[in-house]
Structures are given as C-alpha cells and as structure tokens.
Amino acid sequence: MMEKPWPFSRPSQEDDLSTVADRDEYLTQFLKRLIEDTGEVEKAIESLVAAQGIPKRIAESIACDLGILPKRYKLNAGTLGFEGQKRLLCSQVMIVGLGGLGGHVVEQLVRCGTGIVIGVDADRFDETNLNRQLYADLNSIGRRKTEVAEDRVATINDAVEFRSLACKVEDLEDKAYEGVDLIFDCLDSIPSRLYLQHVGERFAVPLIHGAIGGWYGQVAVVWPGSQLLSNIYGGGQQGIEKDLGNPPFTPAFVATLMVTEGIKVLLGLKQKENGLFFVDLLNNQWEYVTL
C-alpha cells in the first residue's frame, strides 16, 4: 500500500530519537497531528502503527496520554480513567487454564484492552466443555484451546497481543514468565495450583486465584510469599467439584470476580491483604475471610 503523503512536516531523520523519552514525545506529537488531520482516533492510530511500526496497543496507549480513547474503550473511561486504560494497555498477563474460568477471564481482559495476554493450556475442547466453557462450541471440538482463544481474541480486539502456549504449566520454561505482571490461576487441579503458587513466588508475580465447584466458588489474590493456597488446600488433592460438577453460571460469575480483582491489582487499587472471597450462589451468601 502506498504511504499517504503527510499533511504536516514530519520530523527529519536527523532528529534525535535515540532516547526513550524523546521517542515517546515524538510519537505523541505524531499521533496528535494525525488525529487533527484525520479527525478520527481509530484512523490516526492505524496510521501511526503503519508509519512507525509500533504495536497497536502502544499506539492506543499514546492516545491515552493525549486524553483521547478509541471508541472501543469509551465506556471503560469513566471507571478506569485514561491513566488506568494506559496501564492496562501496557500490562502483560498470563492466564493458566483456558477452561470454564479461563475463557471468560480472557474474554473480559481482551475487551478491557489488556496489552499482552498469554494463554496456557495443553488441552483440546471436547463435548463435556460445551455446558460452560465460553470458547467451546460445535466448531471448536477437537481444536486446541489456545488456538481457539487466539482466533477469538483477534475478532474482538486486534490491539491485544495474544500468545499461545499449548502445554502444561509445569512444562513452561522460565522465559515464559518474562515481563508478566499478573498470573490468573484458572486451573482445575490442586497440585498444579500449588505449583503455580511456587512460580508466583519465584518470579515475584501475584496470582489471581479462582476456583469453582457446583454452586460455589472462591477468589483470592495470592501475593508472593503469602502461601495462601497452601493454607487453603493443605494436603488435600480434590475439591467438591468432583461430586458437584461445574454448571455454566458459576464459572462466569467467579471469572468476573477474578478479572475485577486482577484489574485492581494492575491499576494499583488493591491493598496487600491475605483474604479469600467465598461465594455460595445457592444461598446467595458471600463471605470474605482473612487467612
């Protein structure tokens, strides 16, 4: 595609863009003029991406600096603010387990505009997933969960970079955690959850823990060093979901809680406290216990 002739004088090649601060300012001014020229932030962002070869999520974060949001984030603004939206666009999160909880967690984080989302799951969809897993449908049976999530993300928000890791969390290499700000524990086994707690400690990354069984669920922020999951699970190997199964409404509810807790952590709105939300949707009971 031919590059559009610029309606304003572009900074020359000789301009010093060697320092990050200068480059940030340069890109900001560049986008500002593009917005003035096109009158539309979406077009201006696309032009900035094309002209400067930067990821779209970064271009969108520059728009936040200008106090302008793409339309897709307009209804986030009153809640997250420009600074909050920018932080999300510059965040990198990992979702371990793309099943009942993980699908909903990915969906909401992507719609929020979380910059980099890493999905970890070794499994493929099967018929037993259809009752509750957001990305399980008649077309996705037999496909890798990471692959389906990646396709879905691309149709919702092309500014989000989704990285697929189709393996068990225990098989991830250290480099997979580089730059990760937050990990969502959407796993379905206690030993794997305890392994993930260990990972969070090793890399000093907080976890958002979520678990479901029947009408019941729990959510907690696991701060590195807290050993919260060890306190919850002790030596147990199985939960009540073994008998109660997982109906569709509980994962969606618990995933929503996980995402709100996660966003608060990313935006610095969460105090470091060791507690657990316990939800009983049968009796409409909600408990927060400190551990």
Partner: peptide
C-alpha cells in the same frame, strides 16, 4: 467455628 469445603474446579 466456621468451616469451608475445598473448591478446586476451573
């Protein structure tokens, strides 16, 4: 005394 069951599904 408050008692909670283990929940581990995902």
């Amino acid at each position: 005394l408050a008692l909670f069951p283990p929940i581990a599904g995902g």
